[in-house]
Design a protein around this nucleic acid. Structure first.
Lengths: 209, 209
DNA sequence: TCATCCAGTTAACAACTGTTCTCCGGAATT
DNA sequence: AATTCCGGAGAACAGTTGTTAACTGGATGA
């Protein structure tokens, strides 16, 4: 038994996670650029100076949040886009709906800070989204409709899909934020999003005409 | 000559505009939710209390900025979308590029606060974008390709176009923000955006198959 | 067992925040 | 000419902010 976790490191990661959770909660009603260091430590129940043991700044914390929010999502997107035929779009919309329902704060954070006031965070999000686009591209390249397509055009299409997914996620989020979150509103968003992606797919099929 | 402007009202609107300009400048590097009232008055060169003569809060100022940024844009979008044939997309992309180049701070503000932390501002932007979508819809309805389309599907398509325009504007903005703003990068964005809109138009043409 | 490490604490710093109340002086109204 | 109006100034309020320095006490490794 050479390498037990270490009580010390375990505790450290535990409070680090507490920082991330508390910050995510506070960020539901404000942007990262207005998030105070003391505000977070107060929410965690810890002294202000403890913050520096984990993060250099709130921007640093924000970058960590980006990884937490998007890092584990790549395989799910990949397998979803890999679904063949007409079911791909249905599954994609369901994946988005489920993910927003399960992690609304994460989605809100990404939508908010993508164009937000903190440069390093914006860059981290941009890099993650570029990764998504690359992955979607290589999946799209696999199916027969991609024959004759240049790499450039495939990437353009992939970006279109990724952006569309983010917009859809943001609309699902608004659905949850409304004073009376109704299943009907959610279904309406799903309906529109599905048709928009279908239209894009149609454009794809006739691109080489 | 019964109704001259009034020295008083003229001065008031002048300093009000100074508030809007100063705020827009400060918001290039932060979000509205972190913009301080005193920060703005300092930039204008006026006492903190003078702020209250013009705005109830910084959120109020934000809403005013939304109107300034998007209010006058409706006729331009309308006539651009009204352009017939293949030239419509070219003109739309050029309109976006020119507008971003002429008013980068306005565009940044809208992109940032669309999902930002200040609810009234988010709502104001949402309303303006809904207006754009409605206008694009009625223009789209005019051309022959719209025959057989339901109102619902036309609105869905209009939203797709509007969102696409915003994404493109944001990409043009990143082009300007980069350390070495190159004409080549701008052309690349224009190229991709044009193709994406073409693909959507293709999807539109085959929607009723 | 003993020395080392290190996550978290306490205290203090100058600087900043939004908001209230009172006042001023020039424009507007009568 | 006299009075009212009102955009802006000034001072003061209690609270907040990020960052520093020196500390404590339990886990860690020799």
């Amino acid at each position: 038994m050479s390498h037990t976790v270490g009580i010390r490191q375990a505790q450290k990661q535990k409070t680090r996670q507490a920082f991330l959770d508390a910050a995510l909660g506070l960020l539901e009603e404000q942007s990262l650029s207005s998030l105070g260091l003391r505000e977070v430590t107060r929410a965690v129940g810890v002294a202000p100076t403890a913050f520096y043991r984990h993060f250099r700044s709130t921007a640093d914390l924000g970058v960590a949040l980006v990884d937490e929010a998007l890092g584990s999502l790549h395989p799910m997107v990949r397998t979803t886009v890999a679904t063949p035929g007409a079911e791909r779009i249905t599954r994609a919309v369901r994946l988005i709906a489920d993910h927003v329902a399960a992690h609304p704060a994460h989605v809100r954070f990404i939508a908010r800070e993508r164009h937000g006031g903190v440069q390093p965070v914006r860059q981290a999000i941009r890099e993650q989204l570029a990764r998504f686009a690359e992955e979607v591209k290589t999946e799209l390249a696999k199916d027969p409709e991609a024959e004759g397509w240049s790499d450039e055009d495939l990437l353009m299409l992939a970006h279109l899909y990724v952006d569309q997914m983010l917009i859809t996620a943001s609309l699902f989020l608004e659905t949850l934020e409304s004073p009376e979150p109704s299943e009907a509103a959610r279904q309406r968003v799903a309906h529109i999003a599905t048709r928009q992606m279908r239209l894009i797919s149609l454009g794809r099929q006739h691109w080489l005409d």
